[in-house]
């Protein structure tokens, strides 16, 4: 039997096969954060959707008029419904349709949180190449989430 050796990397094969076939602690932490965060996101999504379609929260665009806007491009939809670009929707959180973005943002934000957690873990283990890759990923995702990147309307 091979000697037991503590797994110090994400999943690089070590001398201990029993350790190798198991997911590393960093990977397990990532999985746990992703699982619980996604669960919260899904619950928030369903709860806000229920508030929206039952009419408990008044929507920004009335439900009966949705079919007149969803045939248009996103730029026209924003203009017709006064839907702000980027994070401007935060000012409309009391609207039934807009509050659905809370759940969506939690779901889309989970990867950023998981990668930030992973980057810290990699830094503690002094795995610098992987640390920089994980940090670059956080920067890329934050850039995408920031709303700074805007496409020209067609």
């Amino acid at each position: 039997m091979r000697a037991l050796k503590k797994d110090t990397s994400m999943s690089t094969p070590t001398k201990d096969i029993r350790q190798d076939i198991k997911a590393s602690p960093a990977q397990l932490r990532y999985a746990d954060t992703l699982f619980y965060g996604s669960l919260v996101g899904f619950v928030a999504l369903l709860a806000t959707y229920a508030l929206y379609v039952t009419g408990l929260l008044e929507p920004q665009i009335p439900l009966e008029q949705m079919h007149t806007v969803w045939t248009h491009s996103a730029a026209e939809y924003r203009a017709l419904g006064h839907i702000p670009q980027g994070w401007g929707w935060l000012a409309l959180l009391n609207k039934g349709d807009i509050c659905n973005f809370v759940g969506i943002v939690i779901l889309a934000g989970m990867t950023i949180i998981c990668f930030a957690q992973l980057a810290l873990s990699l830094a503690r283990r002094k795995e610098w190449l992987m640390f920089w890759i994980a940090t670059a990923e956080v920067v890329v995702l934050l850039l995408a989430a920031s709303g700074v990147l805007v496409a020209g309307a067609h």
Partner: peptide, 18 residues
């Protein structure tokens, strides 16, 4: 996730259908 953020920020997500 990264592409979804761009679409979300541009108003390309309609919760009623998504």
């Amino acid at each position: 996730t990264s592409a979804a953020w761009v679409y979300l920020n541009q108003g390309c997500v309609i919760p009623l259908m998504a």
